[in-house]
Nucleic acid binder design. Sequence first.
DNA 1: TGGGCGTACTGTATCGATCCAGAAGACCTA
DNA 2: TAGGTCTTCTGGATCGATACAGTACGCCCA
Lengths: 355, 355
Amino acid sequence: MKPTLQTVADAVGVSRSTVSNAYSRPDQLSPALRERIHEAARRLGYPGPDPTARSLRRGRVGAIGVLFTSALSYAFTDPYAVQFLRGIAETAERHGNGLLLIPLSRSEEQTGIEAVRNASVDGFCVYCVPAWHPALDVTRSRGLPTVAAERPAEVGPETMYVGIDEVAAARTVGSHLARLGHRRVAVVSDFLVAQRRTGPVTVTDPAEIRYDVTRERLRGFAEGLAEGGVGWSDLLLCNAGANSRGEGERAAAYALDRVDRPTAVLAITDLLALGVLDALAARGLRPGRDVSVTGFDDIPEATAVGLTTIRQPAVEKGAIAGRLLLDPPEDPAARQVLLPTDLVVRTSTGPVERK
Amino acid sequence: MKPTLQTVADAVGVSRSTVSNAYSRPDQLSPALRERIHEAARRLGYPGPDPTARSLRRGRVGAIGVLFTSALSYAFTDPYAVQFLRGIAETAERHGNGLLLIPLSRSEEQTGIEAVRNASVDGFCVYCVPAWHPALDVTRSRGLPTVAAERPAEVGPETMYVGIDEVAAARTVGSHLARLGHRRVAVVSDFLVAQRRTGPVTVTDPAEIRYDVTRERLRGFAEGLAEGGVGWSDLLLCNAGANSRGEGERAAAYALDRVDRPTAVLAITDLLALGVLDALAARGLRPGRDVSVTGFDDIPEATAVGLTTIRQPAVEKGAIAGRLLLDPPEDPAARQVLLPTDLVVRTSTGPVERK
DNA sequence: TGGGCGTACTGTATCGATCCAGAAGACCTA
DNA sequence: TAGGTCTTCTGGATCGATACAGTACGCCCA
């Protein structure tokens, strides 16, 4: 039988409450008694108050849940995600909280829903989960504070988020390429369509895209490219089955192997962009000369390969998300944070070659 | 007031137990009543059984805790750690469990100890935590199943671990270099001494090294190098303040800037080895020709930079650790796993240049 | 008619702590 | 010495669920 508070109390000859106080409010009892209690606890092998029971009574757990789409096992492959996690982890750490990672299936399946319902946490951070995902109904119904890692399409006064102006950031990318003279342009992105397949897709209107971030970034790309007279329907859209380097390469292949090969490929994340660069390399094409490539996020590797991209403060984003959950500002307006972004021009983009 | 089981029970006019069954054992009541209960729950905004209360009663939580040394915020910077995490995450996911990440301070400070005591988990995975760390006393006292991500120095019949034969693996590295003719050799490693400083240190005997993995790998290095007549005291030991690329570079500087520059630098992890390569590059030295460099782990980047290293199955290691916790084999012997390793020779090592 | 049996539901004890009102005693003050 | 205050400790209520023994009732069959 594992020892409990009661066991220790009986051994010392005091009440349960006193033992509890010895752990949780040491100033409430005399040093002598406190020491006797701790001594008895050591002797009996009592490990201290049971966390679960304590959480039940106190009404708080000391952990925050982080929701991911895609198998948890893939979450760690995107350096951007890792940086975000670092940020939120730092904050959690400072507050003595743990981070409970909760995997979600990417589609409408129920995988992970149960985990959300069962998670012992004080709040949720929703990272890269589409607004229509059923898990979000569960988080809402649990009534715990929730912060989104991007600006949701619908923002109420209670909504907490830390994001960037996706449209504006993406617009600078489109505009940059338009000015370089690019008119035949492909986009590599995941979540363009509901299905998970990799390949070219048709999307009549960006409004059809169901994942907020994807939709907004594509809108921004299109707005920027419009400066060069490129319309939405001129874009060659290639869906990637996942946000991974490999899928980026596969998706890019559909664009690069066309007779009217695009002069620029815009990837919606750096990870996909790395895949696009792989696809170029495999075909002996030079980034920034034969084909311009852009990414989004500015992960560390982007520097190494000279990728033109949008820099967003990933670690800071995570840190702020953590702070919103663990130490929410009084002012409701301060619970909705938009961070600045920069276009970082490197060697992967260049002017269209004269024929 | 948040609705509880009782609230719903009263609304429907049944007992608390019946509502509980409606959620946890739906086959125990008639479909009609079950539907009425769920309908009432929806109407009242009851999110389902409270996870904390359920855990208390059931005696299990549905989450495993992962202990890290170093700020949690740094844990994600080592690709090897990330791969290990992926493995354990996959297993946790399959079992419907969450992963609770618990940051520990690297030294004897109490940071994180409280988090270990408070963690609501069913078991612990101890990743890269020295045997003397006070947090391990806490995990032991909590009496939960615990698996180590490396073979501990002291192994009892109850101990669970998944590791590699560190000495043997490191010996192949030492031996490889000995055969290439290296006699002036430096080692870059963290945890060589208790202090966190970066720079050359003196360790009279490997037994003095307090962190198991470091000690064993260094023993292995020495044993292998002994084939070339290099003794322990001939090794130039450079301590790194942390397991990071930057610290690797700083530590390597102390070796590379000597008049009697070593012909080989052995790093204890790939991450440190990348830093060593940075240090070479900064000095215009060619890896594998001017100075040979080795790592340990075989992270993805090792391939890209041609680093000679020890490959160990990181993802699998994590997966097995998860399985040991969530689905422990009957046979106690099967709870102690040693995985195979390989020496992967790439371009960062080569024969000593003739003078 | 009544024993046997299965289904559907109830009631109470229990998990292991924390909270809080209050009691007992020591000590101080007028 | 009565009354007040402070410190220290107690006991019962409580958090929100689950386990399990037990009851009520309908049904079948001899």
